[in-house]
Design a protein around this nucleic acid. Structure first.
Length: 437
RNA sequence: GUGGGUGUAGCUCAGUAGGUAGAGCACCUGGUUGUGGUCCAGGAAGUCGCGGGUUCAAGUCCCGUCACUCACCCCA
């Protein structure tokens, strides 16, 4: 009845009813199992943090997207915020490491599956409240830690049944080297990289124009765009990066990670992608993201952030990690395996409710069958069978005057319509255990 | 945050030159007093997103607002 939108959840947030929630929780459990198998342990932190912990970590754009919480009490009138909802799970992790330092195992490998909030404009596959599945290694500079996070994310995607995805691999150092090789002034570097990131969506001439508009020399802009879009762009990049110290370091770390994970996750599933740029300011080395067919944006991402813990006042510890965007992954796997949300067995109630019905239902439940009794107000069997069918029940139990007199119940197979009379205490025995046929 | 589109019954939508609303599906009841998924008959359901304006009269025109949506921005 056409009432107001006021009662709907705020835009960019959702209510989850049973079928969808089950699907989600199953996915979370799958991911958690993979992470545990890699030896990561769980961590839970508060939904909100002191605001100064969050600001300045995500870049200017990112800061605008932080949900702020106003001060309360006598300071309320000031309109200032002193707390904010977490924007991701990585910064809270860095805060934990800064707080507990040496009391944590080293390296510290942790995962977290929890909601984060962004004051973003919602859109397709884009929410203001969504769950991230993060895993990170703090305290290791070994390329193995980069490789293992990539590998774990890949395993998780496989376990979720995702097929068509690819890792794009790059390095902040390689990007810095790239800018150096092409003589892009440092001040323009950041914006130039973001512009380059558009190359897969936008026409290359437009990208070149935008680069010029940002202050690059026309010749620089053109050669950058040409080299990045050429057939042999990877070869051209490798050549260009060879001319700079940072470029060589970047290439080396990229090759090292590629060499470590290619066998495990498949060579065709990961590639050095010179134009791939990640927005978050805190990355310092390897960066990667996962793209999937039929989904704009990325479904997972990560990288190395060696300076973040220290910037929060903690020890100078290297770190790397990654995060899966389950919301987007769930959108891809939804419907693929539609779980029946209802009942296995529906127990009808023709006469007044009787204890035998609960006994039969109890036996079935003990045997693992998801069993429901009719709780509606109709005494008509037709209606109750319809209810049973709506619930997706494979069997219905019918218990009326006839059956009661004989000490039996009728079991109706809802797909074939076949009916059998069995002794009232033999129902579970007749159907067996759930799943064993 | 910027620009475009949409907003009519639970869902998908129609609504012709402004004259206070329609279809399909779903739902409910009955045909079948103990048998669902077919069929037939009937029924219920909308202050036409919200607020204001023009008009004798607005779902229809104008302004505002909110929501959703597409592109940009950014991201999972």
């Amino acid at each position: 009845m056409g009432s107001s939108h006021q009662l709907e959840p705020p835009s960019g947030t959702r209510d989850f009813l049973a079928p969808e929630l089950r699907h989600r929780e199953r996915a979370f459990a799958t991911i958690r199992d993979v992470f545990e198998r890699y030896g990561f342990g769980p961590l839970q932190t508060p939904a909100f943090e002191r605001i100064e912990v969050l600001t300045g970590k995500y870049g200017d754009e990112g800061d605008k997207l932080i949900f702020k919480i106003l001060r309360r009490g006598e300071h309320e009138a000031s309109g200032e915020a002193d707390l904010a909802l977490r924007y991701d799970l990585t910064v809270p992790l860095a805060r934990v490491v800064a707080t507990y330092g040496s009391r944590l195992p080293s390296p510290y490998k942790r995962y977290a599956i929890a909601p984060v909030w962004r004051a973003d404009r919602p859109g397709k596959g884009r929410f203001r409240e969504f769950v991230q599945c993060d895993l990170d290694v703090v305290g290791s500079t070994s390329p193995l830690s980069d490789a293992e996070t990539v590998s774990a994310v890949s395993d998780a995607l496989d376990a979720l049944g995702l097929r068509r995805y690819r890792f794009l691999l790059n390095s902040r150092r390689a990007l810095a080297g790239l800018l150096e090789s092409y003589n892009v002034p440092e001040a323009l570097g950041g914006r130039a990289l973001i512009t380059l990131d558009k190359l897969d969506k936008v026409d290359s001439a437009e990208v070149a124009a935008e680069l010029e508009q940002r202050g690059l020399h026309p010749t620089t802009a053109k050669s950058l765009v040409t080299d990045l879009t050429a057939e042999d762009s990877v070869a051209r990049m490798r050549a260009a990066l060879g001319g700079s110290e940072q470029g060589r370091e970047g290439l080396a770390e990229i090759d090292e990670v590629l060499g470590l994970v290619s066998d495990r996750i498949g060579e065709d599933r990961i590639a050095f992608t010179p134009r791939m740029v990640r927005g978050l300011d805190y990355y310092t080395g390897i960066i990667w993201e996962v793209v999937a067919a039929d989904m704009p944006g990325s479904i997972a991402s990560g990288g190395r952030y060696d300076g973040l813990v220290e910037s929060l006042g903690g020890p100078k510890l290297p770190a790397c990690g990654g995060s899966l965007g389950v919301e987007r992954i769930l959108a891809l796997t939804a419907g693929a395996e539609q779980e029946s949300d209802g009942l296995d067995v529906a127990v009808t109630v023709i006469e007044a409710p009787r204890p035998e019905l609960l006994a039969v239902a109890g036996d079935l439940r003990d045997a693992g069958w998801r069993t429901g009794t009719y709780l509606g107000g109709s005494g008509k069997l037709a209606k109750q069978l319809r209810w049973a069918a709506d619930q997706g029940a494979r069997f219905s139990v019918i218990y009326g005057a006839d059956e009661r007199a004989a000490g039996e119940v009728t079991i109706r197979d809802m797909t074939t319509g076949e009916q059998t009379r069995v002794p009232i205490h033999g129902v579970a025995g007749h159907l067996g255990r759930r799943g064993t046929g």
